[in-house]
Design a binder for these strands. Structure first.
Lengths: 233, 233
DNA sequence: CGGATGCTTCGGCCCCGGCCGTAGCGTCCG
DNA sequence: CGGACGCTACGGCCGGGGCCGAAGCATCCG
């Protein structure tokens, strides 16, 4: 009884179109201002402000002040996990009466996007598969571990994984079930490192201010040469 | 935009105390009648009926008719995952202003409970750790795979894992982050098999109609003799 | 067949909470 | 220092939805 009320609070916070849109927008792991989030959600700043205050109060969001701006971000990777779970269910359990109405925007999201701080969509799954094929990580039915020499081999590729810090360290290698592909992609510290690498080398760039990613020509070549990925989808 | 509205619908369904209580009650993987769920949620049958209809319509629940009874259960393991995610956040992000108010009921849940169709809580984590220690499965920072001879060794213990069926088969071995222990316990088909084994041998019994489990004397002995688990918590 | 039981549908009450306009507070800039 | 800007607080409107009582169906049982 104690927990279900709290669960309902969490659900209620997600269960409002404007808030859901804001949370979704924050799934790219960046911190956005209240104004930007108001735009994303299609409400006025004062309305957005109220929503943000409630979500911050509930520890779903964290806020950092910088001058006259306030940057809002997801409070933790666990919250990102939660949102991803909801998105997964949303994609899977659609009542058949309503068709998804997949537009070009949606297609781009499916091709490549960020999921908090790692790669997702077709790109994320393809890169994960490539690492599995090369034996850097081993996947088995939706769960994976890093090979003994995995980190060294990644380092050889120029990908440095940050070392664990403290007892509450994030997992090194964690599977994250992709809502569009319905197959696991790479998350955890390793997933974040790979994603960072892709951005640093300009292999991918953000499309507009969204989570969707565009793969640059340079990126396509790198995928082909270094990961043996010729096509994504 | 297309997805966030659907996400909000999902959130809204969870975001209501009565519905959250019902979903939580169904987390034990059993199918319950509308009347039982009404009791759990503390509402009248007609109110519960409305809630159940909405959740079924949204494909969160599935219902099976049997005579004049209608048995409601979670629609899929993915929904169970979602609820577990919410519970995890609920346990972790409690605003400090409010104390958890942990009663004896809560203590029992933390000690041992079912999570959909596998073991969770202190018991679930302990059994998972034991399997890891014995090398049946390998865990690495929150993700695991089955050893090559893992299934054979489980079979030797009398635990039979059902074979995968079809393309949409459930994962064999999947980590599920325990909301009370904040460490992974064993899920997937393997987790279900272990849980079933515990029930079949009467090593555990349900406390009342809840998800909480009581470990029988026979169970304690089996844990000690077969898994090397002397104490749980 | 008639009553009990389990569940759903309908109708009406009422409150919660989203929305915006207006106003107020802090921060940056010329 | 005054104005622009970003954000928050307050008040009022209003619609969605939770709740129950009463009534309606279906199923089982004697």
């Amino acid at each position: 009884m104690v927990n279900t009320n709290r669960m309902a609070e969490i659900g209620l916070l997600i269960g409002e179109p404007a808030r859901a849109a804001m949370l979704d927008a924050l799934m790219d792991g960046r911190a956005l201002t209240a104004g930007e989030l108001a735009g994303v959600a299609g409400v006025t700043p004062q309305t957005a402000s109220g929503h943000l205050a409630r979500m911050t109060e509930a520890n779903l969001l964290a806020v950092e002040r910088q001058g006259r701006h306030r940057y809002h971000r997801l409070a933790s990777a666990e919250v990102a996990d939660l949102i991803e779970s909801v998105a997964r269910i949303a994609a899977v359990t659609l009542p058949e009466t309503r068709r998804p109405v997949t537009g070009p925007r949606d297609a781009r999201m499916r091709l490549a996007r960020t999921c908090y701080d790692h790669l997702a969509g077709g790109l994320g799954v393809a890169v994960t598969d490539a690492l599995v094929a090369r034996g850097v990580i081993v996947f088995d039915d939706g769960a994976g571990i890093v090979a003994p020499d995995g980190l060294d081999r990644l380092a050889a590729l120029g990908i440095a994984v940050e070392t664990a810090a403290g007892r509450t360290a994030r997992p090194l290698c964690r599977p994250c079930l992709d809502w569009s592909e319905r197959r696991p992609h790479l998350a955890g510290r390793l997933g974040a490192a790979v994603c960072r690498h892709f951005f640093d080398r300009h292999w991918v760039t953000r499309i507009g201010g969204s989570r969707a990613l565009s793969i640059t020509p340079k990126g396509r070549q790198a995928l082909r040469d270094r990961f043996g990925i010729a096509e994504i989808g």
